[in-house]
């Protein structure tokens, strides 16, 4: 079984290193709400200080673990590669997924940047095929790399014009 574990190598390219900071900021923003709610509750109900502080500390510990571990783990997993024949991505962290689609079956190539991603000069690239089950998404790419990838893929797909189902 050991040989088969090594069968499919991960895609060659990592995403932008700045993606780690972006994921960390996004995750922290997500934790802001529960922490704020707990603080407000504490302020409103100062009689039972002990349990409140304990709860707050617990939330803070879990949040800190998530914010520090997830971006690093995800950065190690998220990878991509595009050859003239195929696009190959790997994503996730706890649960991971690899997706492969032949360039000849690509229907659309989108790139998009959210406001937060703009701050970190990052972009996403989404590659769709005729199947609703298989869009390939590459998160946290460097903006220039994303543009280059989109150009490359659109060139490759326009060369081949069947209806790709």
């Amino acid at each position: 079984m050991e040989s088969s574990e090594a069968g499919l190598r991960p895609p060659r390219h990592r995403v932008s290193p700045r993606a780690r900071a972006y994921w960390a900021v996004r995750a922290s923003a997500g934790w802001l709400m529960p922490v704020a709610a707990q603080v407000i509750w504490l302020a409103a109900d100062t009689a039972r200080l002990g349990p409140h502080v304990a709860g707050l500390v617990l939330t803070a510990v879990v949040a800190a673990a998530h914010v520090t571990v997830m971006p690093q783990w995800r950065y190690r997993v998220h990878r991509w590669e595009a050859t003239p024949e195929a696009v190959y991505t790997q994503s996730g962290w706890f649960n991971q997924e690899r997706r492969i689609a032949p360039v000849s079956r690509i229907q659309t190539v989108d790139s998009e940047r959210g406001p937060l991603e703009q701050v970190f000069r990052l972009a996403n690239v989404t590659v769709t095929t005729a199947s609703a089950a298989g869009p390939l998404k590459i998160h946290g790419l460097d903006r220039d790399t994303a543009q280059r990838l989109v150009d490359e893929l659109t060139e490759g797909t326009s060369a081949d014009r069947s209806d790709a189902t």
Partner: peptide
């Protein structure tokens, strides 16, 4: 078949299994 998704959860990785889509 258009392409492949190879999904592996944490526990699937530990068991050496994968869900091929």
């Amino acid at each position: 078949v258009i392409g492949w998704n190879l999904r592996r959860s944490f526990f699937q990785r530990r068991a050496g299994l994968a869900t091929l889509v």
